[in-house]
Design a protein around this nucleic acid. Structure first.
Length: 593
RNA sequence: CGGGGCGUAGCGUAGCCUGGUAGCGCGUCGGCUUUGGGAGCCGAAGGCCCCCGGUUCAAAUCCGGGCGCCCCGACCA
């Protein structure tokens, strides 16, 4: 490509809306342009980089047996009604009616369509295992797009789906993806870790997320340097403190004016916050099935005063679709007093009481008396109240002891660039996607699903690889291999040499972006740095006097003069060396579940 | 959905408080000069000041409503 013909222009000033370096650089270097919040056009440079990323993904998924397909973006709602997700998924799924007034959805993921394909095509265990994938547009009506390409509404995702006859097969395909994903990110020069994660709306048995550790990340991760434990904070568990050895004392009311917070209460009574119980109230949406409406139920959650509630854990513990904080009048309606509440003596009908697993082990806690200004000393689980569920409900925090090894947990932020799910039979049972096993029994196919967002991956690569001057593309992702800065001034022989090298480079598979614009050297050098191709070839009157062209790497200050008749072979060798180095980054990562 | 910020030429912005001819830098176009790290001079084009309504002799400016974008939170693959 000649830059005089390149559709996109670089910007001198970055549009004010961009804050993250990757977002600024994507705009400044002319890779993307916004259409509306969370949707972008990908201009030629971005398109080429994305194609490189997608080809790496194809290479690695093909290598574990993947077969590429393409599924529709628009799905009939009936399919999603069959699996129940029509009712479970909220407004992030875009819905509309077609001309015949049929409900339709824009595909945000494709488990339903895959399961539908399976029920049409798969008859026998002999057709399994199987791995299908596509690289395709997804639409999710995000409540809040942010960070350029970090979170968008419309994006491209590689989604693969494994199909197996047995659980061992699922395990094998899951592990194959576990490593293939590391290979993909390593080949894109993006450092990631795999963490355990919530299954969310996907359902299923287990999931990992691939996280690029960076402060710009939206997720909080809990990590243990001692044993390598790594989990999304949504599911991370810390070690339970040892049970208190203390007999139950008789409970008694105590006047505690103006103590609506745990801190104020502990201060007034001179007890540690660990000797108090904290109440948190929600209205949970329990999904109705086909033909049923969703129900709302009051949830009374209790954790110890020294811990924080983890809403994901609570949601999972009660199987809710959604939680929202309860309003004051809703809290009063069940007989609780905001700021002074406990499950003791609630008007119980319809209230779902859920307590953290630490509560039954913690005797004689101070808890609310359900009257303004009063608490109860020495409340005890089992004697004074019981719960519908006892479960781990607390947020793991920086400095907590590790559940596995007792080491110290730390937290870090990360961007989720990929995920893998063991789905099991959740979709195939609902859609009756079954096969006959060798004994002639009909069984549901066992599924896994695996996703990587290529645009988010691109923005993370830029976030990781940039400096003040611009992007520093790794060779494997770079839109072109080399920028040729042709300083054309008053030297027709420069233009001729540049044109000759350009033709020869492409004929040898060296992808050259030739800056043939009528611009000053400063502009061209700055744009070359900004776009950030791994190699830069400078051709000017000066370099010709010195015997050729000047070759420099984007991430180095050193340059050398290469004779003109050796330039393309030198570039070819340099590109091959960089590509080989890039592939050599792949290394095996021990599987940990 | 809650909180905050912002919408003025392609981009970055001043003006708004205190109403009265819409300004600057970059970019763009033409000319001359210049040419190894965002050149100089001369000339030019380019504005429903986000939209609708109100107040006023007069609104970019004040008031009301709406829309859009960004950030934090909630939420989320």
């Amino acid at each position: 490509m000649r830059m005089s013909r390149l559709f996109s222009q670089t910007l001198r000033d970055v549009p004010g809306e961009a804050e993250l370096p990757s977002h600024q650089l994507l705009l400044k270097a002319g890779l993307v342009r916004p259409l509306s919040a969370g949707s972008y056009s990908y201009l030629p440079l971005a398109r080429r980089a994305l194609t490189k990323i997608e080809d790496i993904i194809r290479d690695e998924i093909d290598a574990i047996g993947g077969q590429e397909i393409t599924m529709p973006v628009v799905h009939p709602a009936s399919l999603w009604q069959e699996t129940g997700r029509w009712y479970q998924v909220g407004p992030e799924m875009a819905r509309f009616k077609d001309r015949a007034e049929r409900d339709m959805v824009l595909g945000m993921t494709h488990e339903e369509v895959i399961a539908d394909l399976v029920r049409q095509e798969v008859r026998s265990y002999r057709q399994l295992p199987c791995l299908l994938y596509q690289i395709q547009t997804k639409y999710r009506d995000e409540p809040r797009a942010r960070g350029g390409l970090i979170r968008v509404r419309e994006f491209t995702m590689k989604d693969s789906y494994s199909l197996d006859a047995d659980w061992e097969g699922l395990d094998a395909q899951y592990r194959a993806h576990f490593q293939a994903y590391f290979n993909i990110f390593q080949r894109c020069h993006l450092p990631v870790i795999a963490v355990r994660s919530d299954v969310g709306m996907m359902g299923g048995q287990m999931a990992h997320e691939y996280m690029y550790l960076n402060a710009i990340g939206e997720d909080t991760l809990v990590l243990c340097d001692g044993c390598g434990y790594a989990a999304n904070r949504q599911v991370a568990a810390a070690r339970l403190p040892a049970a208190e050895a203390e007999g139950a004392l008789p409970s008694e009311p105590v006047a505690t004016p103006d103590t609506p917070t745990i801190e104020a209460l502990a201060e007034l009574l001179q007890v540690p916050t660990a000797r108090t119980a904290k109440a948190v109230f929600f209205m949970a949406t329990i999904a109705g099935g086909e033909g049923e409406v969703d129900r709302e139920r009051f949830v009374f959650a209790v954790v110890r005063g020294d811990s924080e509630l983890n809403e994901t854990k609570l949601t999972n513990a009660i199987g809710a679709r959604d939680l929202r904080p309860a309003r004051e009048e809703e809290i009063r309606a069940v007989g609780a007093e905001p700021g002074y509440a406990s499950p003791v003596g609630l008007r119980g009908d319809g209230v779902l009481v859920v307590v953290d697993e630490l509560i039954p082990q913690s005797p004689n806690l101070v808890a609310g008396a359900n009257q303004p200004g009063y608490h109860l000393r020495h409340t005890n689980y089992g004697r004074d109240y019981t719960a519908d569920h006892v479960a781990d409900l607390v947020l793991a925090r920086d400095g907590d002891p590790c559940a596995q090894c007792g080491g110290t947990l730390r937290t870090s932020r990360g961007v989720e660039v990929g995920n893998i799910f063991k789905l099991g039979t959740r979709y195939t049972e609902a859609l009756e996607a079954v096969f006959l096993d060798s004994a002639g029994n009909s069984k549901p196919v066992i599924m896994g699903s695996y996703g990587i967002g290529s645009g988010r991956l691109l923005s993370c690569v830029i976030e990781e690889h940039h400096d003040e001057g611009g992007i520093r593309f790794p060779i494997s992702v770079a839109p072109y291999h080399v920028s040729c800065v042709a300083l054309l001034q008053r030297a027709p022989e420069v233009a001729e040499a540049a044109e000759r090298l350009y033709q020869e480079a492409w004929s040898q598979g060296v992808e050259m972006l030739l800056d043939d614009r009528d611009a000053t050297p400063g502009v061209k050098f700055n744009d070359a740095d900004l776009i950030g191709l791994p190699l830069r070839l400078t051709l000017g009157a000066r370099s010709l006097r010195q015997g050729g062209a000047e070759l420099k790497a984007r991430d180095s200050e050193e340059s050398r003069i290469v004779p003109l008749d050796e330039v393309v072979s030198t570039l070819r060798a340099e590109v091959d060396r960089l590509l080989a180095e890039s592939r050599g980054r792949v290394s095996t990562v021990p599987y940990a579940d």
